[in-house]
Write a protein that binds this DNA or RNA. Structure first.
Lengths: 353, 353
DNA sequence: GCCGCGCATGGAAACGATTACATCGGTCAT
DNA sequence: ATGACCGATGTAATCGTTTCCATGCGCGGC
């Protein structure tokens, strides 16, 4: 494969000049430039990014570690991230953690080894050594959707609390009183927030949330099935189930069907995260929708800001002027989620139509 | 960030020795080795893969270019690919082509620039300059699922023809006579094969396949909607529609609902590619299932074979002994797909239950 | 007529690893 | 005792770029 030397030789100039042309630095005679460009295309030369990155210490690459590729929410997110990154001249390397801490850390390390310029993470449950180290080492880093308490890393997410309140009101209005929830892993920040909001909203309606109505899931389909099964061994099964992500909702559907029951006749179902398929399930599933694309875009914006602020100027990473630093770390963004009522919780005036 | 020199200094040895320890080459005294290892962990040193790859001319990285991340079939494939690759000590960089030729070529070039060791592609419709060049340049490369005619690149895929025949028989048995199909892009190899098989099977049953029952899609949801809409402006709309991928099937569902019609009462629906959601749509969708995971695994196996055969030995790439080179390029693999009948085509003894 | 300056270009040192080759004791066979 | 050999380690070249500094040249001002 042709190298910069070959190009230089062919154009009759030095490698330095070729490099200047390629990175369009000023101070190259027009005629020389065209000669170089000609040589480049004749040899169909492409710079070796490895060498380039080694020298310049930047890869123009972002790492994205997502919790689960099979979850449509995350693939939509990944897609948005990639789009925005490409628009800004970065490429993205995706690592899929499959909700496993060890796999997540594996990917974080691999990405860091590749010397990515910045890291976007939707961290799995639990304490991640790799992430803690990376944050301490000052790797530009942004959390999306989920986060790790105690780490001073900007966070881009949607606050689902008011939407959860809406949901509970909706369920209450439809006559449901025995509401259950399926959470994510114990330490999952998003899941805990959703649980807290759920509990709070129930209290507002004077409803209890007994422990046996709190199912411990792990954001994956199988756990939705398992928890549903256990719900229906209770003397008094819930009449509505709120799954804190879409895969677990799928699990609920599967198990409900296995048990020979029906949604919403035997039990209502709602999910966090809306996805296209929910429109066409039987019945269509009520869900809380996040502005997924925007999350991706904003996250990349926040990250590239971080990346680019640290290299050119030695400016200290103090908060920028026009940024509302609402609570979290500088650069954090909080969008909002909203309820989309469908038939899976029973009929009402909004869904009957 | 600490470099190999720092480790060497700390351990009181030369960089060569450190390198030898790190790549466990023989001929390092046990005591020296432990001293080096100690230094490594004290400095929490991690080798710079850029430098390493630059020198060794291999990245232990595979590129995967998929047609559409939002398509569950491809994310499942991607996941299988990543798993298998990781098991073999490779990492994977995914590029999402979004069914666009230019985006695909962009990713192919980017991946090549990164000096990946091998490329796995499920090529989009049309003639790809980048892929042609890569193949000619001898980049180790394997096609998965889709392929490009005329390029001598191994192909790992599932042959859906017999499953399509099964499907047509199924539809015929249910009394359908006006069968339509929604294809992918014109030049798409998989779509064409499915179309041909469909046409052939119809002929076996003495059924015609008029042009207006062939809808031109592009493997994306919106095209499924569009084609469905046009089907229902025909004087005689089809009574069954076969979508050649799952996203277009989703589009059909959406449009059928928009038109105020119902599946399967007003029109039957079947799709190529089975996905978990199809079990829970209203109604559950009859689909042709591919062994997706296996496709991913076998593709990686084929690719790493290629990669590893070319470096250590100068062995010519002739076909290996125990390989059935069925028609395609050496290393090709063909698995089979099968029909999963559900209610979207109407009731019969298999689905009524 | 000379100095200094700016412009276009080239030479060569990095970046951080791997690895061929040299070196240096020590052991053993002759 | 000598040299061949071997095992453990070090020296330095190398991969393909970028970039600092030097160089040479033409030109305007004095």
């Amino acid at each position: 494969m042709a190298g910069i030397k070959d190009v230089a030789a062919r154009a009759g100039v030095s490698v330095a000049t070729v490099s200047r042309v390629l990175n369009d630095h000023s101070g190259v005679r027009e005629e020389t430039r065209t000669r170089v460009l000609a040589a480049v295309s004749e040899l169909s030369y492409r710079p070796n990014t490895l060498a380039r990155s080694l020298r310049t210490d930047q890869t123009r690459t972002l790492g994205l570690v997502i919790s689960d590729v099979l979850n449509p929410f995350f693939t939509e997110l990944a897609r948005a991230v990639e789009d925005e990154a490409r628009a800004r001249g970065y490429s993205v390397i995706i690592g899929n953690a499959d909700e496993q801490l060890t796999l997540q850390d594996h990917h974080v390390r691999t990405l860091l080894d590749r010397r990515i310029d910045g890291l976007l993470v939707s961290p799995a449950d639990g304490d991640s050594l790799a992430l803690r180290e990376a944050a301490l080492a000052g790797i530009p880093m942004v959390f999306v959707d989920r986060w790790i308490a105690g780490l001073d890393v900007p966070l881009v997410r949607a606050d689902g609390r008011s939407a959860v309140r809406e949901l509970v009101a909706h369920l209450y209005a439809l006559g449901h009183r025995k509401l259950a929830i399926i959470t994510g892993p114990v330490a999952s920040t998003t899941s805990n927030e959703r649980l807290a909001a759920f509990r709070g909203a129930l209290a507002e309606h004077g409803l209890p949330l007994p422990d046996h109505y709190i199912g411990q899931g792990d954001f994956q389909t199988a756990s939705g099935r398992r928890v549903t099964e256990s719900f229906f061994t209770l003397p008094e099964p819930p009449d509505a189930v709120f799954a804190t992500d879409n895969l677990m909702a799928l699990g609920v559907m599967e198990q409900v069907r296995t048990l020979g029951l029906r949604v919403p006749d035997d039990v209502s179902l709602a999910a966090f995260d809306d996805i296209p398929w929910f429109l066409h399930t039987d019945p269509p599933i009520t869900a809380i929708a996040q502005p997924t694309q925007q999350l991706g875009h904003r996250a990349v914006a926040a990250l590239t800001d971080l990346v680019e602020r640290r290299s050119p100027l030695g400016a200290p990473p103090g908060p920028r002027p026009g940024e509302k630093s609402g609570g979290g770390s500088a650069g954090s963004v909080t969008l909002s989620a909203h309820l989309i009522a469908r038939r899976s919780c029973g009929e009402d005036e909004r869904t009957r139509r």
